[in-house]
């Protein structure tokens, strides 16, 4: 039996330009944070707490990007059975949960100042919480299920169900009237604030992309290591057989 060393997948997930993407992320995020604190004017009623907005909203937007990546890749996995699609789905779910946690942590700090309470039954809060729970459950199943083909299938099913459920959760919770701020849609925002927000959105978006590519790369390497490990154990078993 010949031992084939698997080709490393590093070049397939972004390759060289992950580095450039990381540099762009660092530059944009630094500029964005600087603008959020020093360029954008202080909001009249909320004061400094309003600046959470520059971190909170971009995180919320990339949370959706993460979960959508997960669902799309899950469909691709079920259709094609490609391991790569499975790795992408996992990366999407992990990043979605990461940014969703950021949203759930930064939201209450703002709400404490704006609404006088850490947590309310407001629709979008509930939606975000439920979404986070669905994908935390997804990750738990991933972790507990091991690396079998069956677990990958189950997780693909969960990823699709999870994203399909988001609009339903939204419909259900929105029948209770909410009081989430809708600053952007009403145009009640200073131009400097809009600039800072745009740069932050770009920065967080780039960070999401960089992390996604890195996580996919790590996932593909994990796959390689596992294939290698299986081959080695098979090889050792044959050698042991010959010896005895």
């Amino acid at each position: 039996m010949k031992l084939t060393i698997p080709t490393l997948h590093t070049s397939e997930a972004g390759g060289e330009w992950v580095t450039w993407l990381a540099i762009a992320t660092a530059v944009t995020l630094t500029a964005g944070v600087g603008m959020a604190f020093f360029y954008a004017p202080e909001e009249a009623t909320m004061g400094v707490v309003q600046r959470i907005f520059y971190f909170h909203v971009p995180s919320a937007i990339v949370t959706y990007a993460g979960f959508l990546t997960c669902a799309t890749a899950s469909v691709a996995y079920l259709v094609t059975g490609s391991r790569k699609a499975d790795v992408v789905a996992r990366a999407g779910a992990e990043l979605g949960v990461l940014f969703c946690t950021a949203v759930l942590l930064s939201g209450p700090i703002w709400a404490r100042k704006a609404w006088g309470t850490w947590w309310t039954g407001e629709p979008r809060l509930l939606l975000t919480l439920v979404m986070c729970l669905i994908f935390v459950a997804y990750l738990v199943v991933r972790q507990m299920g091991g690396r079998s083909e069956m677990t990958r299938r189950i997780c693909a099913v969960l990823g699709i169900l999870g994203v399909a459920d988001i609009p339903l959760v939204r419909v259900a919770v929105q029948r209770w009237r909410g009081n989430h701020p809708r600053v952007l849609r009403e145009g009640g925002i200073a131009p400097e604030m809009a600039h800072a927000f745009t740069v932050m959105l770009l920065g967080v978006g780039l960070m999401f992309l960089t992390l996604l590519l890195l996580r996919i790369r790590a996932g593909l390497l994990e796959e390689d290591v596992e294939t290698w490990h299986l081959q080695l154990s098979a090889r050792r078993a044959t050698l042991d057989d010959r010896r005895s």
């Binding site: 439920v130 669905i134 459950a137 459920d165 959760v169």
Partner: peptide, 14 residues
Amino acid sequence: VLLPIVLYPLCLPL
């Protein structure tokens, strides 16, 4: 253990 963890958030809207 996994069934309730997965099922409850998913069927919460219903």
